[in-house]
Design a binder for these strands. Structure first.
Lengths: 145, 145
DNA sequence: CAGTATCCGCTCTGATACTG
DNA sequence: CAGTATCAGAGCGGATACTG
């Protein structure tokens, strides 16, 4: 079930330019890691976890309580993926009642900045989107039914 | 099958502050439109379509050819969602061989800027992530199997 | 050309149960 | 407390066929 990420470890393509931003460099091609990482990073729970971990490190149950919409399984799975990607660190405290702390790594912290921008965009434009949807539904929804 | 977006058209919450960026304002709560919009916007095909439409307006078949990994169905579905959200405009030319052009709306154009940032982050850090994964797999993968 | 409708498999996800 | 294992249901996404 490995997604084959180890198949091309150091693949960079050399065409990575942030100036012209050619779309074709990150399309759906199989070898494109960017798309795959994007999926990981844009994941529903990943976004929430990274956001929660912004300022403080949290325990498993704290995260679960805070996010609350998440199931134990999904939180666990998400956390492991994030840990594997080097975005979140996992610290086990060898105490009687097991205690595990999760925190953002420096890399994870840089991602948070970017995610913030996306969320801010959404917050800023949610009103416009809601209106667009209402308008669309008014135009199309009525002729049928 | 409606996701009930019309239930709270003008909901803004008044706590929307981009300064402190309180995570709890966009968590998984049902009433939170931000999460839902985020899912739409972070969608695999949406990202590609918006990227393709950056500089020019394209026809359905052109989009399909360019993205190419996409099926006709998914492109159609994605386009309709994007149109409903007011991110993409659809122009039908009443000619003998039907011709439809898709383009980014002004709103869609602002989103592209943000998406670009996310993609740039991914491109910039894909190497680090690949290394983190390799390290993780080396640590965990070996003890079993 | 530009879609829509249908079938269907596969993944994602939640609920439940069990372990260290 | 902090997970993992298993199972079943929902939904996504693809292939195919049909329409305006």
């Amino acid at each position: 079930m490995e997604d084959g990420t180890l198949k091309s470890p150091g693949y960079v393509d050399s065409t990575t330019t942030d100036a012209d931003f050619d779309v074709r460099h990150w399309d759906a091609r199989e070898g494109c890691e960017v798309r795959q990482i994007l999926d990981r990073v844009a994941d529903k729970w990943s976004l929430l976890v990274i956001a929660m971990l912004d300022c403080e490190s949290l325990r498993f149950s704290q995260l679960r309580r805070e996010i609350d919409g998440v199931s134990q399984r999904m939180l666990s799975v998400t956390l492991r993926k994030l840990e594997r990607d080097g975005l979140v660190s996992r610290t086990v405290h060898p105490v009687v009642p097991p205690r595990v702390d999760y925190a953002l790594t420096p890399l994870g912290r840089t991602l948070h900045e970017t995610i913030k921008a996306l969320v801010t965009w959404t917050e800023t434009h949610q009103q416009e989107i809601a209106e667009a949807r209402a308008a669309y539904d008014a135009r199309h929804g009525m002729m049928e039914a």
